[in-house]
Amino acid sequence: MIEVKGLFKGFGDKVVLHDIDAVFGTGQCNMIIGKSGSGKTVLLKNLIGLFEPDRGDILYDGDSLVAMDEGRRKLLHQNIGVLFQGSALFDFATVIENVMFPMNFFTDWSVAQKRERAEFCLEKVNIVGSNDKYPSELSGGMQKRVGIARALALSPKYLFCDEPNSGLDPYTSILIDKLISDLTKEFNITTVINTHDMNSMLEIGDNICFIDSGTIAWKGDRHSILDTDCASLKEFICANTLARNIMEGQGR
């Protein structure tokens, strides 16, 4: 479980995040949603330690990220898997080498054991027969799946996904969503997904935080999101024609 308590973050005079309180549960797909520029990426980068909060705290199963020294942070990072928006696969490595990369650093397994684990992770994300391809030879959807396999390589307790569907067609997006959701449940991972994709929210959003102007304007789940009274969230949802039609059809 990850808890965010009274988090503030700004750049110069501009306050981007203002008094954020949130809880991201284990075994759930936790979503941070909001318009572009609302502060959701800044929140995600604070959560994974790429930015330092100005005030407030982030607790990983009770341990404060802010208070951790570099050594403990490194240990924590070995329990974190991150899927970046552009997949961030290493250009210099093949698919299998990408997945084995964290194992090379943090395990003393034999090459055969690492390869076996990498193949298991790749099989989980339905990538078979592409072990020796380089990232540039893969489609966007395949790159995302390899990115997920790499994030799972060390059996992380926490998985962060930054806009996992960006640049993908609707069919592949749904496959990626289902995959993330299934893996979250199967391995009991605390997954935090940063997205503005309505389909994802309605498909797999177990716990949703809507950020507006740097603060959490609404919390709920995929079942309650369409019943919201929050005006800014309604405006955000109704920008999507499908969701608007559903809401109008249901008289909301």
Partner: peptide
């Protein structure tokens, strides 16, 4: 520079490397 802008360096840091 290319690794930085495509987040490959961030990915390494996030692994604890």
């Amino acid at each position: 520079g290319s690794m930085r802008i495509t987040e490959q360096i961030d990915a390494m840091d996030m692994m604890g490397v």
